[in-house]
Simulated assay, not measured.
Amino acid sequence: MSRILIVDDEPQITRMLRASLVSSGYEVIKAGNGREGLEVFESSKPDLVITDLSMPVMDGLALTEAIRRISRVPIIVLSVRATEGMKIDALDAGADDYVTKPFAMPELLARVRAQLRRQALPPQESTTPEGTLNAGDFELNPEVHRVLVRGVDVRLTPKEFQLLAALLQKPDRILTHRALGRFIWGAAEEGQVEKLRTLVAQLRKKIEHGEHRYIHSEPWVGYRLTPSPENL
């Protein structure tokens, strides 16, 4: 049974989350702010963390940074639209996903399942820049610049290849525009959002056909790749 830590200062949200997660078969522990959440995290070793961003004592951004210094456990942040910049900062600091308040529980549960699946991948499916990346329908070999999608060879430009490699290294995670731009264009990433959007559109045309949709846009934030269409 997976153990999930909820960190939120709103009792009503915490109660709703706990009830839904417990009924879905998860063990749930909770904390009312970031500082308490970090203490509970260190003592209970959860398999996944769900944290609000706006909290007293220690906010969700500081909690995310603190957890990332000691663990790679999946972190899902909860955020209202008004904190878009803080949401992006949290993702760049190491959060794996976010859900915007108010949210539908089926969506959150789907994202929890996706993160726990990713965490449970066997070592040979871990992604490394030097070796072949294998995830879901994809196989990418940097040494020979080759991409297979569902066993079919797909020809990509160098920048399309870099974009797919970046997304495959962190499947089922949101990568911000800033992070992707830095990966592809280096120090020249500032102001490249439109250029990135064009590159994503080009890549989609080459790897997505019919019902097979892999790249998902997160408005104003970035992109995520689900290596198997059924992941979310």
Rank of each mutant, 00 (worst) to 15 (best):
M86A: 07
L116N: 09
P122T: 00
R3T: 15
S217M: 08
P102Q: 11
L225M: 06
P123N: 03
R72C: 01
V80R: 06
L61M: 11
V154D: 04
D97F: 01
I67W: 09
R155C: 04
E208N: 09
M1Q: 05
S71Y: 10
H212Q: 14
L133E: 14
R178A: 11
K205Q: 13
T14I: 00
L164A: 04
Y26V: 04
I70S: 08
T128W: 00
E39M: 13
M1S: 01
E218T: 11
L175Y: 04
T128Q: 01
E230V: 15
L63R: 05
P158I: 07
Q202Y: 07
S43W: 07
T64L: 14
E10L: 10
D47G: 04
D89S: 12
D97I: 10
M58L: 15
V221D: 04
D9Q: 14
V77Y: 00
F103D: 14
L21Q: 03
Y98P: 00
E27Q: 03
L199G: 02
R18N: 00
V193T: 08
A165S: 13
R35P: 03
A19K: 09
L78P: 08
R117A: 13
S20A: 15
T176H: 03
E211N: 12
I174K: 02
E10M: 13
A187M: 10
P122M: 00
T176P: 04
A165V: 09
D172V: 07
S44A: 14
I75F: 04
Q169E: 09
F161D: 03
P171M: 01
R72N: 10
L17V: 00
N231I: 15
T100I: 00
Q162I: 03
E36L: 10
G60H: 07
V149W: 11
R18I: 01
L91V: 09
G60R: 09
Q192S: 09
E125I: 05
R35D: 10
A95L: 07
F183N: 00
K101G: 01
R173M: 03
A188H: 11
E139D: 15
E230Y: 11
N141W: 15
R113S: 15
R173I: 07
V28C: 08
I76Q: 01
G131V: 05
L53E: 01
P219E: 14
P158M: 05
G181R: 06
L133Q: 13
P171T: 05
K206G: 05
P102E: 08
L121S: 02
G136Y: 12
D153A: 10
K159G: 05
L63K: 12
H212N: 15
Y214D: 12
Q124P: 02
L168W: 04
E36S: 15
S217V: 10
E190F: 12
L196M: 07
L109E: 13
Q12L: 10
D96V: 06
A165I: 10
V28F: 05
K170F: 06
K101H: 01
V80G: 07
L53T: 03
R117M: 12
V147R: 09
A166V: 12
R150H: 13
T100P: 02
E218G: 11
R182I: 06
P129S: 12
V77T: 01
L38S: 10
L156E: 01
D137F: 14
T100H: 08
L121V: 03
G34L: 09
L225K: 04
R224V: 02
G60T: 06
L121D: 06
I207K: 02
R113A: 15
R182L: 06
E218H: 08
D8Q: 06
M16F: 02
